[in-house]
Amino acid sequence: MLELVCPAGTPAALRTAVDAGAHAIYCGFADETNARNFPGLNFSRDELKSGIAHAQARGARVLVAINTFPRAGEPGLWHRAIDDAARLGAHAVILADIGLLAYAAEKHPALRRHLSVQAAASNADAINFYVHEFGVKRVVLPRVLSVEEIATINRDISCETEVFVFGGLCVMAEGRCSLSSYATGKSPNMNGACSPASHVVYKQEGDGLAARLGDFTIQRVGKGEAAPYPTLCKGCFSAGDYEGHVFEDPVSLDAAQLIPRLAEAGVTALKIEGRQRSRAYTEAVVRAFRAAVDAHARGLPIPAGVLQNLTEGQRSTAGAYKKSWR
């Protein structure tokens, strides 16, 4: 059966996701070592310890994301995160930085290493490089690949692949984007934050609402229109004669209907984005995807459209999985 890998931003969300049917949970420590370094989110060491115990008692695994890039001169925070994940019994660590992969392979050879989407390993040669050099057992594929390309990759590699199926959608190759730091000084790679709320300012303009990220107005909505969170790459811009969402509309990923094709393409695990989401959201999405995975395992069709009201701005896309997206 396909493995369902679900997000947990808090200990309560972890328990919710496990109880809703997650096979595996991914989470991070409450600091800059992971790519969802948001205020009030993530785990202390003690919370991770209890979370792992809760998951293990119910047959679920816990993966610890340590997927930002350590600051030069200060690797200690990141090294301690790996040491503690190993000590507390994490099933695997999810890493992106070559230096951290080398550290983990040397210091904790028995600890399973997954390659984070933030490493953007987008073809078989790059993946095999990480497998040969650092013993990576699973790679989370960047969201730039079509289903056909994923199938080709799986034929040529010797590790497992995990793909995103639901939630926020990076339109850029992950871990290779400094748009946020260009506008705000805070970057996913260095600070674990993209388009951070600390740099968003809303301004009432007559009946409408404008959103600024840093010094830049990237969204303006009229009265009664939905105002999605102003993520830079989903902002509204003009370029030449084009006016609108130059990079991507404010949509989120929903690849539920592609589950059978992803399975055929050799994918091992399906990943849900959203460690920053509420428990209610986590529960609804995990439950729906577990039902979809179970249906697929029994040879039944995937239930349609159950999650539409949970996608951002009520609209969803299959993203790069379909070639026409490009």
Binding site: R143, M172, A173, S178, Y182, V246, W325, R326
Partner: peptide, 21 residues
Amino acid sequence: RVPLAISGRCYHARVHGLHKD
């Protein structure tokens, strides 16, 4: 000019109403 991001999608094509292929 600083290279800030790279994508599977071609934005030049997109703003001209075309696809990458």
